[in-house]
Amino acid sequence: MRSQTTITCELRSLGVNAGDLVMVHASLKAIGPIEGGAVGLVAALRDAVGTEGTLLGYASWDRSPYDETLHGAKMDDQQRRNWPPFDPATAGTYRGFGLLNHYLATSPGALRSGHPDASMVALGPRARFLIEPHRLGEAFGNGSPIERFVNEGGKVLLLGAGLDALTVLHYAEAIAEIPGKRRVTYEMPLQGADGQTVWEAVEDFDSNGILDCFAIEGQPDGVETIARAYVPLGRHTQGQVGCAHCYLFDARDIVAFGVSYLEQRYFAPSAKPGR
């Protein structure tokens, strides 16, 4: 079992520095036993970035009705009436994106963005700047917390998580100038001013496959495809934290690579004369 101090030192050796803005994706199983468990890992991360640093995580929502309302799918009336509205202060986190996000969200001082399905959690002095605003229809693209994170010079930390976990690359998908991007429609329940639940219609890019070729079951999506092409360039750092093999990426650099990767391979010459 590693101590919090040991984990902090390993994070520093990987390149996490005091004052950094770090988006974390973690597999607690891959990291192995840590003093204090997941809470201890959060404490080690906070120690590594220091009091001036900020942590960001992708929390989503464990009660998101995305699948139930996708592309006009209808819920029965009783299910719709009983579905809870999204409340950033109390909403659960989607376990499929890692249990660490639950502990980030429940840490004292943590703030949660107001987009139910793409909810982000931030902890540190830049938390409010990162999470507000987070409007429906702007999950990962222009105007999103991810855009602000990238523009602020953030770093992306994979602690035993796979390359398909690089949420920041959804921003590259959103801003890349390529034709044929897939769109989705769905609904989200929000708390109305009168306390009643208001269902809001949403249209956004399809983060499960920005192009048809990335939406084939069993095949890598755009995020994983871009990440696999980026890693061999060696413009990142990697090492061990706990028992896990870990990566640290410069968000601006990997996003710029992702945009270029998509535009060079999937750009239609007829769409933009002279290019």
Rank of each mutant, 00 (worst) to 15 (best):
S3V: 06
T6G: 10
I7R: 06
C9N: 13
E10V: 02
L11K: 12
R12G: 08
V16L: 09
N17G: 15
N17S: 13
A18E: 13
M23R: 15
S27R: 09
A30D: 05
I31R: 04
P33Y: 08
E35H: 05
E35N: 11
A38I: 13
V39N: 10
V39T: 10
V42N: 05
V42R: 01
L45W: 03
L45V: 11
D47E: 14
A48W: 07
T54P: 04
L56P: 01
G57N: 14
S60Y: 12
E68I: 03
E68Q: 12
K74L: 03
K74P: 13
D76F: 01
Q79Y: 12
Q79S: 12
W83T: 02
W83N: 06
D87P: 01
P88H: 13
A91E: 09
G92S: 08
T93P: 13
R95A: 15
G98C: 11
A110R: 01
H115L: 08
P116Q: 07
D117K: 14
M120H: 15
F129I: 12
F129T: 15
H134E: 02
H134C: 08
G137V: 06
E138V: 07
F140A: 14
S144F: 14
G153W: 09
V156W: 04
L158F: 09
L159A: 02
A161C: 09
T167P: 01
I175P: 03
E177C: 07
I178W: 00
P179S: 02
R183I: 14
V184E: 07
V184D: 03
E187I: 02
E187W: 01
P189H: 01
Q191E: 04
Q191P: 03
A193Q: 15
D194F: 06
W199I: 06
E200T: 06
D204L: 10
C213I: 14
G222H: 06
G222P: 08
T225K: 01
A227V: 04
Y230P: 03
Y230A: 11
Y230M: 10
L233K: 12
Q238F: 13
C243L: 11
A244N: 03
C246R: 02
C246Y: 02
Y247Q: 07
Y247L: 05
Y247T: 05
A251I: 05
I254C: 09
A256Q: 10
F257Q: 08
V259I: 06
R265K: 07
A271R: 00
R275C: 03
